[in-house]
Design a protein around this nucleic acid. Structure first.
Lengths: 141, 141
DNA sequence: GTATCTGCAAAACATTTGCAATTCT
DNA sequence: AGAATTGCAAATGTTTTGCAGATAC
């Protein structure tokens, strides 16, 4: 995605593309690391010395409001962010703490009284041990 | 579930059943309202005047550690708790803020590279509008 | 009598708010 | 110039920690 494409995408979604906003959005789509606000701040600081944490928070809130990013609440003590707004799952490895994206076939999901609910948002969170860490350690209990 | 049954259940799970712990556990299973720590504190205060918020936090953390309760992170600004530790889903209505339990048939859920992950925990969160609120309001957008 | 549990007060953190300075068009 | 954005400092709210007193076995 070129800077111009990002600019157009954000503008289309009612997000005026300032330098800070572009930088944060670009960070999200290039790293795909589901960062916290603090991680984004620390990582962009070297390149944008005047950046403030407030702006990172403001921007992420704006992104979520305008639907160009989602908040990931897989842990109760931190909020992470993802520019992939499609419905998909997240798996967090307890060993390496990496968060993997999961492509979930939502059409297969069935639950009681499904039709009673008008669903606007779905989040699927899994925790356990990833393949790499399973191989590196026999004692997974 | 009688007080004696609760006592035995907690003891079996390595939770020594003090008066405060029993009260909090009993609150969870009787109300099934997915409360926050603060809600539990406010609701039990009248009956247990000496109760402190620290004890509520300590107890909930102990419950989650020992596997007799789970933390629900459906919102990013509050942690809720549930004594139903079976794998099930949660639906939060945006209108009435009520959280419904969903019985999900996990066996129907399929995703790519499923076998690469050793899953120990699964959380399913949905947001939207419940049946009651859909009926009460035509304009749901 | 010793270990555990409780609860107060203070600390730690993440996030939000008020507001003045800056930037953009 | 006028409107929006940024960023500092302070406030807020939740959760954790240290520790002393209370409780239980």
């Amino acid at each position: 995605m070129s800077t111009e494409e990002i600019t157009n995408y954000l503008a289309k979604n009612d997000v005026k593309p300032s330098f800070q906003r572009l930088s944060i959005y670009q960070y999200l789509i290039s790293k795909k690391n589901h960062p916290t606000a603090d991680t984004i701040y620390k990582e962009l600081m070297p390149n944008i010395p005047t950046l403030s944490k407030t702006t990172v928070y403001n921007t992420l809130k704006l992104f979520v409001d305008k639907g160009v990013a989602i908040a990931i609440n897989i842990e109760d003590n931190e909020v992470r962010f993802d520019a992939d707004t499609s419905t998909h799952g997240h798996f967090k490895c307890e060993k390496c703490n990496h968060i993997y994206d999961l492509t979930i076939d939502v059409s297969t999901l069935k639950f009681e009284n499904l039709n009673d609910y008008l669903i606007k948002e779905a989040h699927f969170y899994f925790k356990g041990i990833c393949e790499k860490c399973q191989k590196n350690n026999i004692n997974n209990n």
